[in-house]
Design a protein around this nucleic acid. Structure first.
Lengths: 134, 134
DNA sequence: TTTCTTGCAAAACATTTGCAAATCG
DNA sequence: CGATTTGCAAATGTTTTGCAAGAAA
């Protein structure tokens, strides 16, 4: 463990991610810091996000696109993105353990982590595209 | 559809990925082209990989690390990576449909694609770390 | 004072783009 | 011919790194 833990910029960044419900990227975080009239170096934002992830306070998500996104909900959950509008929603339905055991048997691995990404069309997009008829 | 489809570089790249069992990245592909004494421009490799992916001949994987990897097995399957040695294996056990339906009910999405990444320790790493005792 | 953290700029990658030349239909 | 594709170099976007200055134990 390090001697300094939740420094000022780290706390600020953790707060921003915690209060954002849209899984912000590093550059989203920088924008939000700036829009609050504050300033933190690029490198510090990346370092802080890495630190917070490694210490279990944030979770790094690699959804669509190049940039990693960050999520302050660290409980076990997965994500689904809308292929039409890009919305990201969370999935709380637990993974069937029986399935996991079957995969462990198939592969010989012991599974430690699961990162699932579902893609589909969200209710709003589906509705707006397929007007109710009959 | 385009008029030119499987051009020479595209076919070469498809062959390379098909004959590699390690899910190569774009730069792995470039290295292999070079090591065959041939030469294809960076942009062409990226363009070709995108073309092949969009036409269903390859699948793009976003596992660990920055670079996308490509897989010529396009049947529905998922991947598991070893956190110790970085090995990537394939999972053929099908996804429980009942679980998918529950997620659709939970989120209101209609699910089109599933990308799962499992992380764990492979048999070899587990064995070498935990010598048999008793 | 010794270690960790910050800030800044530059570097390192992966990927895309602009544009002219080559190629295919 | 006319559209697509290639090659090259330069641009873009994300993340990391080197190093000096600052802050904390």
């Amino acid at each position: 463990m390090s001697r300094q833990s939740l420094t000022t910029p780290r706390k600020l960044i953790l707060d921003i991610v915690s209060n954002s419900h849209d899984h912000p990227t590093a550059s989203d975080v920088i924008d939000r810091i700036k829009s609050q009239g504050q300033s933190v170096a690029y490198a510090t934002v990346y370092n802080s996000l890495r630190y917070l992830t490694e210490h279990g306070l944030l979770r790094e998500l690699r959804l669509e696109g190049d940039a990693s996104r960050y999520d302050a909900r660290i409980e076990d959950h997965q994500h689904i993105v809308c292929v039409a509008c890009g919305a990201v929603n969370e999935i709380m339905t637990p993974t069937p353990q029986e399935w996991i055991h079957r995969i462990e048997a198939e592969t010989g691995y012991s599974i430690k982590e699961e990162e699932f990404l579902f893609k589909g069309e969200c209710e709003a997009c589906r509705t707006s595209k397929n007007p109710v008829h009959s």
